[in-house]
Simulated assay, not measured.
Amino acid sequence: MKTLKIAALVLAFAGLSVAAKAQSTSSTSTTTNGGIRYSIGVEAGVPTGNFNNAYKWNLGGSLQADIPVANQLFVTVNAGYNNVFGETLNVAGGKVEVPNVQLIPVKAGLKFFPVSNFYVQGEAGAAFLLNKSDFFNDKSVAFVYAPQIGVQFPVSASGNFIDAGVRYEGTTKYSSAFNASKVNFVGVRVAYGF
């Protein structure tokens, strides 16, 4: 079932790529007077690795600023919120509710447009665990990294745009004793930019 969800995400991304190719205006020129682009987005994902044994999916949102530093190259600053929904597990003949993981990731990175409207992006930073007391973790902050590919295309003459990307996001361990305390998922971000 999770493979089907990932396949659906990839197909959606491919459809957005085709739609973006049909646009005639380059998204790399879509900036404010100061050159900075802002976007607010919705994020969703599917846990991967050992993390998907107890978690179903995640939903969240983020704010991002893209700051131009060179032709087709931007520095990104991103902050958001992610809630990863826990499953109900059968353990020793009883049901156990796995608590949700609530995170605030704060990341910075680079976004590069090798061709018009298509970008590759890499970000890293810190992910703050808001509900540490629900787990047996000895850390409330972990290193987070997120490589992403996406498309960005204009939706109005005033410079507004849609930014849609697919990424893998992973953290280091929140507990030195448990490898399963890493948070990993494949997700999408669909954002409105201005």
Score class of each variant (00 low, 15 high):
N131D: 12
P114L: 10
L130K: 11
N52E: 07
F143H: 11
N52L: 07
Y174K: 08
A65G: 04
V98P: 03
Y168I: 02
S140P: 03
A14W: 11
A8G: 15
Q102M: 13
I6N: 01
G125D: 03
N50E: 11
P105S: 10
A164V: 01
S29P: 00
L110G: 08
L59T: 05
G159C: 08
I162E: 03
I162D: 04
A124W: 07
F118Q: 02
P68Q: 07
V84M: 01
G109R: 09
K139W: 06
Q72S: 15
S176K: 13
L103R: 08
A108L: 08
A177G: 06
F51A: 09
A8I: 13
G86S: 05
V84L: 03
G94Y: 13
S116F: 08
S39W: 11
V42L: 15
E169Q: 13
W57K: 14
Q64W: 02
E169H: 06
G41D: 03
N78F: 01
A8W: 02
K107G: 04
L9M: 15
A20K: 00
P68Y: 06
F185G: 04
I104V: 15
R167L: 01
F128I: 15
V42T: 09
E87C: 08
P114Q: 08
K182N: 02
A164C: 06
